[in-house]
């Protein structure tokens, strides 16, 4: 009998499906009875990383809760593309109230469950960067401060994509949006603005804060599992490229996520009680250009006069690498 050598290149940190793994090691998505919490028929754009991330997050959370999960969703793309009356793409009990209040609605659900003695049912809130970092920040901060038993997931596509790609406080510097056009002396979004929501979350010293991307879905899944194994306020920040808003092809969402991590632009980390406990080390460092060049929103950086912007991006990556020790393995 001849031995067939299967190229097993995809196991490890970057694998997606894991059908070549042992059953118990496989991802939720590789299982025949996966929950499909965000099921077929929704209206997300081609290449939407938010839809991909939400499906992984939700299915993992549903599985971890034994099928007893209630979801509160902020207004935004995710809500609009999944629940146009009379259809819904959500299988778990799901509520959308307003743009700014998903965290508070989730607190209300968690409070009701406590009053009812239902400690078996878990609560997840989710929204985009606008609903989390900008308009919903007060409610998110309040939920963190009270340490309510809610896992809050922010799908960060770095702008108001649902309303036509306007700048949010998560929009990176130099990015072209409909309200930060790439014209004039300092084209695109200004430097020195914007918020780091993971750091804001850590400042609340909540039990768990983590970041993840769709380039490493097993990592995302594992972080959801960790979060779901804990109680109190937990925060997960997922970078989700938006082909429409970023001006990329639908096929590039995964590659761009990976480039964001491997260039040092998007640190992938875990923190407990306000302290970073793990960072994802850069395996093969790439220049920021690999992340920036495919995106039309940064096209002006690669035209005459764009060098200064590029250098600032490199400085940003350097600062992240230094601050989060991204080239070192977690001790």
């Amino acid at each position: 009998m001849t031995t067939v050598h299967i190229p097993f290149m995809q196991t490890g940190t970057l694998a997606v499906g894991g059908r070549l793994l042992d059953l118990e090691e496989r991802s939720v998505q590789s299982q025949a009875d996966r929950p499909s919490s965000l099921t077929k028929g929704h209206r997300a754009c081609q290449g939407c990383a938010e839809a991909l991330a939400a499906r992984w997050v939700m299915d993992t959370a549903v599985e971890e809760s034994g099928g007893k999960l209630i979801v509160a969703n902020a207004t935004g793309c995710l809500e609009v593309f999944s629940t146009l009356y009379p259809e819904s793409a959500w299988k778990p009990p799901w509520i959308h109230s307003l743009f700014a209040n998903a965290a508070a609605v989730a607190t209300g659900i968690a409070s009701a469950l406590r009053a009812q003695g239902r400690d078996d049912v878990r609560v997840l809130a989710q929204g985009g960067d606008g609903g989390t970092v900008d308009i919903g920040l007060a409610a998110v901060s309040g939920m963190f401060e009270r340490n309510d038993d809610v896992l809050y997931v922010c799908y960060d596509n770095q702008g108001y994509m649902n309303t036509g790609v306007q700048r949010s406080s998560a929009t990176p510097p130099t990015a072209r949006t409909a309200t930060t056009p790439a014209v004039g002396k300092a084209p695109g979004a200004p430097y020195g603005q914007g918020k780091s929501m993971p750091k804001i979350a850590m400042a609340h010293e909540i039990p768990y804060v983590a970041t993840a991307t769709v380039a490493d879905l097993r990592d995302l899944e594992s972080k959801v599992r960790t979060a779901m194994s804990m109680h109190g306020a937990r925060y997960l920040h997922v970078l989700v490229p938006c082909p429409v808003g970023w001006g990329t092809s639908a096929a590039q969402s995964i590659a761009l996520s990976r480039a964001a991590v491997e260039s040092g632009i998007f640190p992938v980390l875990e923190a407990r009680d306000g302290e970073i406990v793990a960072t994802h080390p850069i395996r093969e460092r790439v220049d920021v250009e690999e992340y920036l060049r495919p995106q039309a929103r940064f096209a002006h950086l690669f035209k005459p006069g764009g060098e200064e912007g590029l250098e600032r991006w490199r400085a940003l990556a350097e600062a992240n690498i230094r601050r989060f020790r991204l080239t070192e393995a977690t001790p």
Partner: peptide
Amino acid sequence: VESEFSAMSVSIGSSAAGS
């Protein structure tokens, strides 16, 4: 809660969850 907006939002969540 941290604001009246959240007071009504928490109320929305808890009422929707059956309390």
